[in-house]
Design a protein around this nucleic acid. Structure first.
Length: 480
RNA sequence: GGCGCCGUAGCCAAGUGGUAAGGCCGCAGACUGCAAAUCUGCCAUUCAUCGGUUCGAUUCCGAUCGGCGCCUCCA
């Protein structure tokens, strides 16, 4: 079964149904990291939102061809990588220094993705591996009269593209010219024209090009890689809201200027993250990486849940209190999963409020998908899950659910976990030490040696195993 | 100057022209040797403020106050 999904489209400012060019196959381009530093949790919010987007399509029965670029040539990368080199260093040495820096931070970035269970993209291209495509694109724009050369740099002439401003909804009259016009770009015909190819300055790594030594502008990277790997028409392109202008607007100018037709149908943007009520900044000391959180004892998956349980188009105020709430919410879902994986206990007998559990699960499933299909409304989708958990827990207390009914609930948990990746089935195997402790506690309890029983129980808790005594005298356990 | 967003209980948060989902926290009780988990009950006469439209508005319109974003690098 394939479910259609709707998303807010920045282009139209409405929630539009996503209609993939090829039914059942969604092409998705997401702007990836600039690898000059470790990602901070604001960056990670965007990548988590994109993972949610992608997994939702997959869970809804679509294949997703996903391209996420790695920007490995850019001003800050050059700034941070060239410092140790003498002025006379060779171009080869400069490239080497740049690559050493970007390789290091790319590896760290991929580790972050893994810790957060963010799926790896189908294509993960590095910008520096697509120079020929970028140069061809700039040449093409030049040939079409949309680009012009000034002292070895190439600029895009936005006056040549009528739809310029369609994404950001800016008109040229209303644009306030930035006060900090780059000193090396004063040659532009119009201050709003942007650079496609930058002439090399002394001390910078460069590539050969028809315009002389230089390097690609930032915006051209995504256009070139996106068109090369996903083609002339892309279903969805996403990034953080800050990329709407100028980055995505300029991508449209480049790609559509070259193609002569619409490039991307659906533009989707994730909102920003604040920290403890303030904008994240290094000076405020609220600038966190995932590693910083882990060092404070935060489970990356709790962070994942905290992010994804809020709507992606609303500013999210990250807080440690919110993180605690996320951890506790997850505990409830996981405890329910454990309960459904086990067998029902003898309950209190017939219950007048009893419902058909399988039908109840299906009802929750429809409510869940209705919410997700409506612009990824995760708060509402999760509400459908929580009310189901409440209802089935209550019923299971009274009249134990059958194996079949429990499996229906588990199937729904699997289906939702395919998106949220936070309550997977966990292997029941325990190591010998833990097994022995559980047995020791059982024996102490049987002997009514409460002090010893409690001592062992605390010991297990310190190992991350929480015991739960059942009505029938047996004892269950869960990780917690 | 131009464009745009947001303001719902202690915290997070969904939502609709018809009278407030869900989660966390908290309180009381049940169960338990004690816990844990679970269950039951309680926890916004009210949705920033003031007007307007309407039989009826948290939901539409206007104004005000407050917070924020973009127009320049930025997830």
């Amino acid at each position: 079964m394939r479910r259609p999904l709707s998303l807010f489209n920045t282009l139209t400012r409405k929630v539009d149904e996503v209609a993939p060019l090829e039914p059942g196959v969604v092409s998705l381009y997401t702007c990836g990291p600039t690898v000059y530093n470790v990602a901070h949790i604001g960056n990670l919010r965007t990548f988590l939102f994109q993972d949610l987007l992608k997994r939702t399509f997959q869970a809804a029965g679509h294949d997703v061809r996903h391209c996420m670029n790695i920007t490995d040539v850019e001003d800050k990368i050059i700034r941070d990588s060239q410092g140790g080199l003498p002025p006379e260093a060779s171009n080869e040495a400069r490239h080497g220094a740049m690559k050493a820096l970007t390789d290091r931070f790319t590896a760290l970035f991929l580790e972050d993705l893994e810790a957060l269970r963010i799926q790896r993209a189908t294509y993960l291209p590095r910008a520096t591996e697509y120079l020929p495509q970028m140069i061809r694109l700039v040449q093409d724009l030049e040939a079409k009269g949309l680009a012009y050369v000034r002292e070895g740099s190439v600029y895009y002439r936005i006056a040549g593209l009528p739809q310029y401003g369609c994404l950001a909804h800016l008109d040229r009259e209303g644009m306030k010219v930035g006060t900090s016009v780059d000193a090396d770009e004063y040659e532009r015909d119009s201050v709003t024209d942007f650079v496609l190819w930058k002439a090399a300055k002394p001390g910078e790594p460069w590539w050969d090009s028809p315009w002389g030594p230089g390097r690609p502008g930032w915006h051209i990277e995504c256009s070139a890689m996106g068109m090369e790997l996903l083609g002339e028409r892309v279903d969805i392109h996403s990034g953080g809201v800050d990329l709407i202008f100028p980055h995505h607007e300029n991508e449209i100018a480049q790609s559509e200027g070259c193609l002569g037709h619409r490039w991307v149908n659906h533009w989707v943007h994730g909102e920003f993250l604040m920290v403890e009520g303030q904008k994240m900044s290094k000076s405020l000391g609220n600038f966190f990486s995932l590693r910083d959180l882990v060092a404070k004892g935060v489970d990356p998956i709790a962070f994942r849940y905290a992010i994804q349980s809020n709507h992606y188009r609303k500013v999210l105020n990250f807080s440690f209190e919110g993180l605690r709430a996320a951890e506790n919410s997850l505990k409830r879902i996981r405890a329910f999963r454990k309960r459904m994986e086990g067998e029902g206990e003898a309950g209190g007998g017939p219950w007048k409020e009893a419902v058909d559990p399988v039908a109840r699960v299906n009802q929750a499933r429809e409510a869940f998908w209705a919410a997700m299909a409506d612009d990824l409304n995760t708060p509402e989708a999760l509400a459908a899950l929580f009310t189901l958990i409440s209802d089935l827990n209550a019923q299971d207390d009274h009249m134990a659910l059958t194996r079949e009914e429990r499996d229906a609930a588990l199937a729904f948990l699997d289906e939702t976990d395919a998106i949220f990746a936070a309550w997977p089935h966990e292997e029941a195997s325990l190591d010998a030490e833990v097994e022995a402790l559980i047995e020791a506690r059982r024996a102490a309890k049987a002997a009514k040696n409460w002090a010893e029983a409690d001592r062992v129980r605390d010991q297990l808790k310190a190992l991350g195993i929480v015991l739960e005594d059942r009505k029938d005298g047996t004892t269950g356990w869960r990780r917690g």
